[in-house]
Amino acid sequence: MARVGSMSRSKAIGDLLAQVAVWTIVLFAIFPIAWAFLISLKPEEDIVTATLQYIPRRITFENYVAIWTRSNFPTLIGNSIVTTLTTVAICTVVGTLASYAVTRYRFAGRRGLMMLFLVVRMFPAVMIIIPLFILMRGLGLLDSRLGLALAYTTFLLPVFIWMMKGFFEAVPNDLEDAARIDGASRLGAMVRVVLPLVVGGLVATAVFIAIGAWNEFLFALMLTTSTGSRTWPVGLQLMVGEFQLPWGSLAAGGIISIVPVMILFALVQRAMVRGLTAGAVKS
């Protein structure tokens, strides 16, 4: 009896320590976000003070109004939305077809192709950016949102294909075979039977790609030169460098730009986590 008691006692202590450790790490993970949010709510004179204010004494939305109305932030966000949607459209159409082919059919060169899609991720961004810059300048795609979206597919299309692979593999072959016996063409079986079953995974994968495109910085810095196509990460960075953006505005801009990420993430995180980890666990 005493033994059971000490066991459950040591388990209770272990559980308590685990709780403390986990919530400490949670604090470490979200503190910078919370801190930036608090700063974004303070008037500038409460940010630049002799003694640091932890809880804002006065709350204001001035910083949000300032960044939205007194800078080209709305244009930057608009460019980012167009670029992101274009990237997602390209990856979804092209990537779904390719991923379907490599998971549901057996053909010569299949393994080699999967390797190609993996190795492509190993290419340094800098190595691709240099020639892309020159090629796109020649084609008139430099400083355009389409050009930037195409550049994003260099690293996002392979990710899309690999992530969708996990979802396609989860659909039993029997369903497709049954549709084929009922006289459906391969195209029909794909569109009417398999695709509807992976819609959840498709959405999660598309969201993951969208977040990647929305956040991207390096390609955008190199391949955009004007406000016509510049995305928000580049614009925000330039504002900090060139115009000495006040802290409150910088924090407000950062919060505005991560709100879509957090909403999308919250909506599909479960399916997204499944897609990201499926390949890792199986192999």
Binding site: I30, N215, F217, P233, L236, I258, Q269
Partner: peptide, 11 residues
């Protein structure tokens, strides 16, 4: 805990 990984480098 997963959140930081999804945040943009710039932010």
């Amino acid at each position: 805990i997963l959140l930081p990984w999804f945040l943009p480098n710039v932010v």
